[in-house]
Design a protein around this nucleic acid. Structure first.
Length: 579
RNA sequence: GCGCCGGUGGUCUAGUGGUAGGACCUGAGCCUUCCAAGCUCAUGGCCCGGGUUCGAAUCCCGGCCGGCGCACCA
């Protein structure tokens, strides 16, 4: 563990940002508690996300269930794609994906869909060996491992369900109704902040890889042929990019260019992705991510998810490691198409033509009172065959009879009983399946990054000081209120002021214990941006000092103006220097 | 899941086959007119289970948890 991450985890434990859950029982890997400071920080971070990616973009937020039935994940591909077959080498102990071994060793494709028992047989029959040490793998058990947490819905096991591995499916599954709320108009965006669950094989690195975590996901449904992002809003934003070809080049590295350049030069293939990279960069800066430790990395071809056509990650550097904090993917129409196929529902939006068009459409209306007696049980199939034939080859109805194939036989039908006609039909538009642009944020990883990048040390009066330079918007506590001393009425006045500030909606810590310096340091360490001290001058003129965390500089402010001043400072409308 | 290393108050740590000390933090009190000052007192600990032993926090085995490497990461 690096010094940075060790120090961060220690601070997080000591000050209540986050810590391992269930430690009274020895702990369970991959589950964390956000403590009093951390829960508030996380909530503030989520609020900042909501502000930027929902409110300011005009999108809609929903909350869908954590548990969903099995069919959802059959449709989404998670049941098959998430279900790994693990094969362990008896000699060297290396674990391998059994389906990959079979694909590489036999040329069989999509071994993933083969049952594990058969995979095990194939491994034995073909004499496949361990890629690491060459030992034969015949007879080794193929273990199934699904990364989804399973459960049963209701009594018994007849209705299996799973804890969602991403919040996204809730937004896809409910698309038919969500589309109604968008009044059937593309584009529209649906967002969700919620828990997702993955039964990771090996949780690691504190908050970075856990089994239960919070995602903030936006699904932006767009018309793939017509909708363009408002790229001009972010055209000049500079993006630190790490494209796939740079990653594969010998001397490749990051390249910096504006959103406009990245689109024009084709570095980012899809303008929608470029748009969100631009928007998100501003947001990361706002929440205190260090831009010298930030990049957008393009996924390599082999790295993409089963649904993703192109993908860029936002990555932050902490303790010498790059952490994926956000994925920007285009899922195209994959999910909506899958759910349409599996559910039989419509996952499309009606797009009117500029002008209605008139088309000639061949139709049939078979006389079943003839087909029934003539063809018996095959009559229905014959009728269906006639309908298909009318669509594909209307000229076949020119003569006295038509011949169709049904039930493996050729059936001859007099044209006069088919009800064949060519109708003029007016079409007002068509049904289009939206494409999905998906920025998917890992909230916990961003919390972790923000804390790491906010850690500072400096020297005040010869003493080392540790503080968190959190943006005021995110800080769990906005202001600490202290009496210089708890006597001569200072304590009472401080309590009054604290109560006033709380009434004004500010998050306030009131502290009257011990030396004033200690109280400042306490607040510094949890990132409180401002501290107000009631001193003897307060008794004369009812002003207090406002001290800024990062500089420790102080200014005097009238108690009457305090709430408004602090609110402006928190919102960033005002700086301490302006006072 | 495999390998290596580790696990002592809230945090950081000392330590030995005879059941533990320090520092910081926290609480109470004293002192104190702006940056972790000082004094007094107090709370609080050997990851869990088994084995060896008269006796285990210490040695052994297993488990759990953590770090790193491998594998995995939709």
């Amino acid at each position: 563990m690096s010094d940075e991450t060790a120090a961060l985890d220690e601070l997080a434990r000591r000050r209540g940002f986050y810590f391992q859950a269930n430690s009274a029982y020895g702990g369970v890997a991959g589950f964390y508690v956000y403590g009093p400071q951390g829960a508030t920080l996380k909530a503030n971070l989520e609020e900042a996300w909501r502000d930027r990616f929902v409110r300011r973009e005009g999108h809609q937020e929903i909350e869908s269930p954590d548990i969903m039935p099995e069919v959802v994940f059959e449709a989404s591909g998670h049941l098959a794609g998430f279900d790994d077959m693990i094969l362990e080498c008896p000699e060297c102990g290396a674990s391998h994906r059994a389906d990959h071994l079979v694909e590489d060793g036999t040329g069989i494709e999509e071994a993933e869909s083969i049952p594990p028992e058969e995979v095990q047989e194939i491994v034995a029959d073909r004499g496949l060996t361990c890629p690491s040490c060459g030992a034969p793998l015949s007879g080794q058990p193929v273990e199934e491992f699904n990364l989804m947490f399973g459960t049963n819905i209701g009594p018994g096991s007849s209705s299996p369900g799973y804890l969602r591995p991403e919040t996204a499916q809730g937004m896809f599954v409910e698309f038919p109704r969500l589309k109604e709320y968008a009044r059937g108009q593309l584009p529209f965006g649906v967002a969700q902040i919620g828990k997702a669950y993955r039964n990771e094989i090996s949780p690691r690195r504190s908050l970075v890889r856990v089994r239960e975590f919070t995602q903030a996901e936006l699904e932006h449904f767009v018309d793939p042929e017509r909708d363009e992002p408002p790229i001009e809003r972010v055209a000049d934003v500079e993006l630190p990019l790490y494209p796939a070809d740079e990653q594969q080049a010998e001397d490749g590295g990051q390249v910096t260019m504006t959103v406009r350049e990245a689109v024009d030069r084709g570095v980012i293939g899809l303008p929608w992705i470029a748009y969100y990279l631009g928007v998100a960069k501003g947001w990361y800066e706002r929440i205190g991510v260090d831009m010298d430790r930030f990049r957008y990395r393009q996924h390599l071809a082999g790295e993409r998810a089963h649904y993703a056509a192109d993908c860029w990650d936002a990555e932050t550097e902490v303790g010498g490691n790059w952490i994926e904090v956000t994925g920007f993917a285009t899922r195209a129409d994959y999910d909506l198409r899958k759910h349409a196929e599996h559910s039989g529902e419509e996952f499309t939006v009606f797009r009117p033509y500029d002008e209605p068009i008139t088309v000639e459409r061949p139709t049939v209306d078979p006389d079943m009172s003839y087909l029934g007696p003539e063809f018996g049980g095959a009559a229905g199939d014959v009728a269906d065959a006639l309908e298909r034939l009318a669509e594909t080859d209307p000229d076949a109805f020119e003569g006295e009879t038509v011949t169709v194939e049904a039930d493996g036989e050729s059936d001859v039908v007099p044209v006069e009983v088919t009800g064949f006609a060519v109708e003029e039909v007016t079409e007002n538009g068509e049904h289009v399946r939206p494409h999905v642009i998906e920025p998917s944020f890992g909230v916990g990883r961003i919390v972790y990054t923000v804390l790491a990048h906010a850690c500072r040390e400096d020297t005040v009066d010869g003493e080392t000081r540790t503080y968190l330079a959190l943006p005021p918007e995110l800080a769990p506590t906005t202001v600490g209120v202290f009496p210089l001393m708890d006597k001569d009425g200072l304590g009472e006045r401080a309590r009054e002021i604290a109560a006033d500030l709380r009434r004004a909606g500010l998050s306030v810590a009131h502290d009257e214990s011990g030396a004033i310096g200690r109280r400042y340091r306490r607040q510094d360490e949890i990132g409180t941006p401002f501290c107000v001290t009631v001193d003897y001058d307060t008794l004369d003129d009812d002003t207090v000092t406002v001290r800024e965390r990062d500089t420790t500089a102080q200014v005097r402010v009238a108690a009457d103006d305090l709430a408004a001043t602090l609110a402006s400072l928190r919102a960033g409308d005002l700086a301490v220097d302006d006072l």
